[in-house]
Nucleic acid binder design. Structure first.
Lengths: 343, 343
DNA sequence: GAGAAAACTGGGAGCGCTCCCAACGGGTTG
DNA sequence: CAACCCGTTGGGAGCGCTCCCAGTTTTCTC
């Protein structure tokens, strides 16, 4: 009853070393897969580890290596979007998948208000993660700059602007939007309107630009800007935008909405105004989310590979953690138009 | 160029102590809000902390306290459900909200296959979290028992069976289902069918039981079991179940589906079979998710407070971490019927 | 104003690990 | 046969913190 450790105590490196008849250093080398261990020693250590069910203490390791073996996924979004958009869960799934054959852990951080922002700040300052994934960035978002200043490896899903210097991955928003609008124009639609996303986000601006580009390349003439109304990615916003559009341009015969959620709102408004879809007005959304399959009629939509995006940002981040001096990289993921019944 | 620390090095307790002219112990006490520090010392320390921008090193702290200040949210679900059901994001939001005025961090762990399960096991064994939230448990899920064996504070969202010994919070599945069916019966519907959830989950069984109970209490007679077909919470499953039901009992005039997603599938099938909703067949779903608002017609559904559920499990877990000897608690959250146009 | 109690304070010990260096042994080489 | 080399090994030092105890100072009590 003297120096007996209380039972249930987890075995330490030391204990493994003693049992295997080697020194601490050797056990550490085996555990970390370092070279320079004889086969004999390795076997003995492995046996001891198995017998004691040894699991390294991450805190002790972290203390000396100052790695944490975890990354944070930061979602700076208001309640509503997180609730409504399957985009985020898809990204989470992708991240998780990519992490699966790593020992890295995923911390999820929602930043919905100042309080949570402060919390994130403290968190990053305490170096509780090796890197940060930032999903959904706004143009004037202070977070990317903060992370850059903290010198912590960071990868964005999306970008602040086309010149984004940080590593990031984004969907081909411009191309996807252009393809959608091109399709509408190709159907012979004369007045193709658009409900944009928030214009303080690159997604919003790029999809709008895609709408413009398609017009330019088709008719060789500019898009009529009175056919563009901005939304906020919410359903009610989409609906309000549709109302406005209808008032402004009763002659419109097609709408490209920058998100499915907004397209759903637009559909509701169109139905209430007695416009038939697609006979009178064709509609295309963006995201190809579950909502697109459930609107009536089912919504034609631009698919973006959200889960792949999650995987991609994770891969970039892991690389960057591995070698922080590595140059920043940017990736654009392809989108595809999924045809349903609103066109 | 001798013992100079490399610049950018974070300040330590020691540094703060030196600057404040006190001992390490005192600084530690201030940082941790322990009592027994004179106002003078406290002020000096706080000034030094501010000046050096000191942030405690969590690894060092964790090493000695063997607390990690983080909890894990474990979601053991197949791809499809996570993708389709807003339930999970709502729970996540609730958890995050409840954690907001804590210094606890949230680790998100998806367990979709054996590989990820092993990873979780190692993870828990390494004691990388102070507690675990387990969302969506199946009757024969090995996870709860494993966590219990590991003696780690655990709270379930849902339960394995009505006798669940672990702390848990669940919606009033039985009551909610009964209320829905009662409503249908009250409308004068004669043959109220049900599409159940997976029967290896308590949610599935309880909602089925609610359907039975409502029949019993209404007519005083048993529900006709030929009117119950089991689904798997997927849309396609709901659709298949509806098809089966229609074949079995062409006379049915109402359906209670144990989830909105399945109800959506059922609606599709009904439409294709030419049954009018709600004229010929009334439909009620469960979850009151975003999908319910987008089906045509909009779906009457049983609302369960998923976000509150997230908050509740978190609160229970924090309490249990605080005092592991605390008796297990169970909570049932109320559901409400939200009327839309399918009834 | 002496003695005792209470309120504070400093710093040693130690958490479990990685890093690194000195030491060891056996095989080569000139 | 001495000098050397290389693969392997053990273990000291130290990461930054909390815990705790032995002082030291202040306050209280009679």
């Amino acid at each position: 009853m003297s120096s007996r450790k209380r039972p249930g105590q987890r075995p330490t490196l030391e204990a493994v070393a003693r049992l295997a008849g080697v020194g601490r250093g050797t056990v550490s080398r085996v555990v970390n897969g370092s070279p320079g261990v004889s086969a004999k020693a390795r076997t003995a250590v492995e046996a001891a580890i198995a017998e004691l069910k040894y699991v390294p203490n991450p805190a002790a390791r972290s203390l000396v290596t100052s790695r944490t073996d975890s990354i944070a996924l930061v979602i700076p979004e208001s309640e509503s979007r997180l609730a409504a958009e399957p985009y985020f869960s898809a990204v989470i799934r992708g991240v998780s998948t990519e992490l699966a054959d790593t020992e890295m852990q995923l911390l999820l951080i929602l930043v919905r208000n100042q309080r949570e922002l402060d919390r994130l700040t403290r968190f990053v300052e305490a170096q509780r993660v090796d890197g940060v994934l930032l999903v959904s960035v706004h143009r004037d978002d202070p977070l990317p700059a903060f992370l850059e200043k903290m010198q912590i490896p960071t990868v964005l899903a999306g970008r602040r602007s086309p010149g984004e210097p940080l590593s990031h991955v984004h969907s081909d928003n411009l191309g996807g939007a252009a393809q959608a609008v091109r399709h509408l124009l190709g159907q012979g639609r004369r007045a193709v309107a658009t409900i944009t996303g928030p214009l303080d986000m690159d997604v919003g601006r790029s999809r709008l630009q895609g709408w413009r580009d398609a017009h330019l390349e088709a008719g060789g003439r500019r898009a009529d800007e009175s056919l563009a109304v901005s939304g906020d990615f919410t359903e009610e916003g989409g609906r309000a935008a549709m109302r406005e559009l209808l008032e402004r341009r009763p002659d419109l015969d097609a709408v490209f909405a920058a998100s499915d959620v907004m397209a759903a709102g637009a559909l509701t408004e169109l139905r209430e105004r007695g416009r038939r879809v697609p006979a009178d007005v064709a509609v295309i959304g963006f995201d190809d989310s579950i909502i697109a399959r459930h609107t009536v009629p089912p919504l034609t939509s631009v698919n973006q590979p959200s889960e792949d995006l999650g995987r991609a940002i994770t891969r970039l981040l892991l690389d960057e953690i591995d070698d922080p001096s590595r140059p920043r990289r940017q990736l654009t993921l392809p989108t595809t138009l999924v045809h349903r019944l609103t066109t």
